[in-house]
Design a protein around this nucleic acid. Structure first.
Lengths: 340, 340
DNA sequence: CTGAAAGCGCTTACAG
DNA sequence: CTGAAAGCGCTTACAG
């Protein structure tokens, strides 16, 4: 492969001049610039990334830590990854991807060896054991998901509390008085998946305020168990007229469950989910839902991360915690309850 | 961050000795080794990846080119990515991920700048425009998917022809005489997705040989269109007793379509799909299927790639084209046709 | 406007 | 068994 030395020789200039001509970091005569550009083209020159990283202490690579946990639903995770990856590319960064179970190790490897300029953490838990490592690292970090302690990192998440209120208020306004909320599996809560109880607690509180009944339950993250869970809940609460779904696997299973029970939404049951529009299309879900905006959250995280990497953020500019306001996408699966 | 120089100083040895003590590439006295190890621990030393890459011309990174095309089904792609990523990690490699639409550009960027030691291509088309670039690159490449021309790369794929025959034979043996095959969208074929017609042609040929009828059709890659496609096909061929599905989106939509038509497999219709077991679980698909083995294919591709990277493959060892033999996973969705 | 030189942090022949 | 030095391919102060 051609090196900057080859370019310099062919262009008849010094290596530093060749380098400056390419970076544009100092004024270069039109003639020299042209000769360098020609040489670059003729030789098919591309800078060696390792050498550049060594000289500049910048890799133009972002580390992406994604975990595919047993109790979470993989296709939902993919959306976040693509949001991060595509935004990174637009901003001129590549993605070093870690999917291994041991996120601490992956994080340490990437940051200690200086393979990356910054880190995006997905799947953030309440007390995420990767956070202490990330805070120690010299590279900035951005999270998708809200931990208990946000110091030292930029944090982006859906406002799950608002989402819980919105779901309950929407159905309350239509006249519903007894609702069932299906959350993610209880393991997720135990592991520290705060988004579960953030939505759930807010929904419970909203129901209490409105004086209506809300049965908050957990559902499996897997088929076919989650289908059985849904049948069980519909059996257990026959008078409930509204179903709130904060569990992607449950949402994916619901069409089949409703068919099996010969129920139609919204005629027999009003349904509101919480998932992305892309997810709804993939799984052909006809239910109104709170948009979880994974692509937007991924974009926001990368944008802020790059601002910090490139020093546009100001050395000691405080870190941000930013919530995306949930919006209800109406797919016509809610209405006034039967006989109302 | 600590450098090898710091380690050497603290251990009271030269930098080369420190380096050799860590690599084990020459004999080191027990005493020196111990001092170096202690220094490494005390300083929290990790080698700088860029510097090492520059010195050794090895990055221990594999480039993974995945495309999320409009006419393909994203969750299916994810399986391949995880197979590649997890195997790479086991073998000590990290993954540089490109998801951008312009795969040629991504490939060139990664290989020219020497960011990676090798490349895995997913989503390979019959005449894939990334292949000429990959062949020119100094790094070895492994493909998941069979192109027309396999020179210069290692190729791994499901034996789609065998899969087509297996599907037809299986139903023929049970007594079926009229079948419908739903393939991926016709765009995929036009773009050069050879796996579509490889399975289809083999199925057609097998049907001809057995003297039975096979209606080969294309289906959309999206919900809800593909559901309508399925209804249309079942309307068009009311006497068909067997359904072959080589289209992930169609497989995902089928439970709903069958419910809507009040049909049960295998009582009313025998169904055989072609997708992975993981995919079946995610989408709760109760149909017998040809295992597409994405994780296994990802593993195979990475293993061979690493063999070449590390020179265990022998400089001019011929490239391989390896097919995974399809296996039918029996989920009980096939039986003798009604009234047989 | 341009060049010679130092330095980024490693590894590895070369010498002893 | 160990050390001094060269070199990987860049960038960027320093000098002119």
């Amino acid at each position: 492969m051609a090196t900057i030395g080859d370019v310099a020789r062919v262009a008849g200039v010094s290596r530093s001049t060749a380098s400056y001509a390419l970076s544009g970091k100092r004024t270069i005569s039109a003639d020299v610039r042209r000769r360098v550009e020609t040489a670059v083209r003729d030789l098919g020159y591309t800078p060696n990334a390792g050498a550049r990283a060594l000289a500049t202490a910048q890799t133009r690579v972002i580390g992406l830590l994604a975990q595919f946990l047993e109790d979470e639903f993989a296709p939902a995770m993919l959306q976040y990854m693509l949001g991060v990856s595509n935004t990174a590319r637009e901003l001129g960064y590549d993605i070093l991807l870690a999917t291994e179970a041991d996120g601490r190790n992956a994080l340490r490897r990437m940051t200690d060896s200086r393979m990356v300029d910054g880190i995006v953490l997905l799947n953030v838990a309440e007390h995420d054991d990767r956070l202490p490592i990330l805070r120690e690292a010299p590279q900035p970090g951005a999270l998708v998901g809200l931990p208990a302690d946000c110091t030292g990192v930029d944090v982006f998440d859906l406002d799950f509390e608002d989402a819980g209120r919105l779901m309950v208020d929407h159905l309350h306004r239509l006249g519903h008085r007894e609702l069932v909320l299906v959350s993610q599996p209880e393991h997720v809560v135990e592991r520290g998946g705060a988004y579960v109880w953030r939505l759930q607690n807010a929904a419970i509180e909203a129901a209490r305020t409105r004086g209506i009944t809300l049965h908050a339950e957990f559902g499996s993250a897997h088929q076919p168990e989650v289908g059985r869970d849904l049948h069980g809940l519909l059996d257990a609460y026959p008078r409930a007229t509204g179903l709130l779904i904060n569990n992607e696997a449950a949402a994916a299973a619901l069409p089949t469950v409703l068919h099996e029970r010969r129920l139609t939404a919204p005629a027999d049951l009003s349904v509101v989910g919480r998932y992305s529009d892309e997810f709804a299309r993939t799984f052909s879900l006809p239910y109104s839902s709170i948009e979880s905006a994974p692509d937007r959250l991924g974009r926001m995280a990368v944008r802020e991360l790059v601002r910090r990497i490139e020093g546009q953020a100001g050395a000691d500019e405080p870190h941000v915690v930013r919530f995306v306001t949930p919006e209800l996408v109406d797919r016509g699966s809610t209405a006034a309850p039967r006989g109302d």
